[in-house]
Design a protein around this nucleic acid. Structure first.
Lengths: 117, 117
DNA sequence: CCGTATCCCATTTGATACTG
DNA sequence: CAGTATCAAATGGGATACGG
């Protein structure tokens, strides 16, 4: 991930580097507000993601200090994912962006529609 | 760009789809607050970008209704880029994300540093 | 000055099968 | 349940050269 750790020009590209995987926004969204989810639950909350991509993104988010991974050594195995404080703050910071997209959703969809045609 | 226009699960992934190119955040940042820049100026404001990527991202942002492109038919040719209302709103919505990254920059850099090692 | 056109490589993502 | 491993496909991005 994360290309060459080149010095970030502004905070924004650092943030994009952290949150810029195909499913990461969805993962953060699924874990919002103190939610704690198991691997399987998370998979169901992020429709279409493969196990490979889910675990890969989770590992990256964990390495970046965004998600916390708690392993319970039981049978059957149980692993729970939640947001760290830094992750919660990120989610909060993402709020206005989600609101923006919601507000302009019609235009976004129209634009995407046009470029398939 | 923009994969298959699959229905967005939440606003966030629509937003990420719009702003998710390698240099797009930087381009938006360069055009913030009513700024109007020519192609060459923009290129200087986004260090390291190639002309190919700059024009490609600009075209995508234009198609998405984020930037406005104004062509002046003169010699030498002049083209000016600015943000649309939707683009200004996006930039505003990106503010908290930039602030988040700024706040946690040390940890972000430390994480990126670790995974090159 | 403001782009376009190719070619090519790297990274990302997806499909499928398998395991403790 | 919660992952790994392997391979193939798609996408994104950079280098270079050229054009109006």
């Amino acid at each position: 991930m994360s290309k060459d750790t080149g010095p970030y020009v502004c905070g924004l590209d650092a943030a994009m580097d952290v949150v810029g995987g195909k499913w990461k926004a969805l993962i953060l969204w699924a874990l919002h507000d103190g939610g704690t989810l198991r691997f399987g639950q998370l998979k169901r909350q992020v429709p279409g993601v493969s196990e490979k991509m889910l675990i890969q993104h989770l590992r990256e988010l964990e390495a970046d200090g965004i998600v916390h991974r708690e392993v319970y050594r039981e049978v059957p195995p149980r692993v729970e994912y939640s947001l760290t404080e830094m992750g919660e703050a990120l989610n909060t910071a993402l709020g206005p962006l989600g609101a923006w997209a919601h507000q302009y959703m019609d235009q976004i969809l129209a634009a995407k529609q046009r470029d398939v045609a």
